[in-house]
Design a protein around this nucleic acid. Sequence first.
DNA 1: TATTGTTATACTCTATAACTATA
DNA 2: TATAGTTATAGAGTATAACAATA
Lengths: 147, 147
Amino acid sequence: MNVPQDHLTDALDRLLALVVILGEDMSGALEAQGLTTARTHLLWVVHHGGPSTQRALADALAVSPRNITGLVDGLVASGHVSREPHPVDRRATLVTLTDDGRRLMTSMVEEHRQLAHRLFGELTPRRLEAFVAGVEHVTARLQEGIA
Amino acid sequence: MNVPQDHLTDALDRLLALVVILGEDMSGALEAQGLTTARTHLLWVVHHGGPSTQRALADALAVSPRNITGLVDGLVASGHVSREPHPVDRRATLVTLTDDGRRLMTSMVEEHRQLAHRLFGELTPRRLEAFVAGVEHVTARLQEGIA
DNA sequence: TATTGTTATACTCTATAACTATA
DNA sequence: TATAGTTATAGAGTATAACAATA
């Protein structure tokens, strides 16, 4: 335990620690508003993509259609979205933000921006650029491994 | 949609994209071995901390004792851990790695090291240092916000 | 009396399969 | 025949509350 490690493993551990604390920060903020990560993800997609069929949402979130039914049920119950009839396809429904949902997403976009400023605002442009370059490098390595 | 953003928000989005793909990479690797994130977390704690009571594991993972019962049940069923009697407290059990569990964790530590080399191995020391400094900065800002 | 772990119950996210209504 | 969304069923992770055995 607490075995000394090479620098690269140490760097990965620090990155993973950041992932954990960042996840806690964000899910904590959502929980304070009675939202979950999955439901917020759906709201985000609808907010940025406009009213969508559940089928389209299943593809966008990469989950089963059945799962979307459950997420939309919850968001209808909490008043964030409504199911509207599709104008031409009577099988489909259009998941649409309510006024409350739209207001929430607007403030969430703003909070997202403020979080970015809180996290990066004190970095010099050079340091920020170096960090982003590292993020991109790591992301690219991961995508190689998957593809 | 696709509204142009400031550089800081863009940096946050890139970091979040990395978080997503890193999470997928790791949970995909675990799934290939029939493990979940939560169960692996428990194994990791036992591997590094030695045999532990469920109470201690509940504290270490920051979840309810009931939750630990479920995770240990699954890991006993998959043969990765066993429940051993506590030597002096007959209320408690010691969650202990089986030989299979120990072998798995040993190989997992090695894979972890290899992942670090895959992600960072091509970076120059300067670039790695700059990236780690950014990670630490962001982590510190997040911890401030919570404390 | 306090603590360890369990049973009981419940909610969320996730999946597949079968089914209904429509295309 | 194919597609959209639902019901049915199931498993994992999470929680609280009540309870048994032990300290």
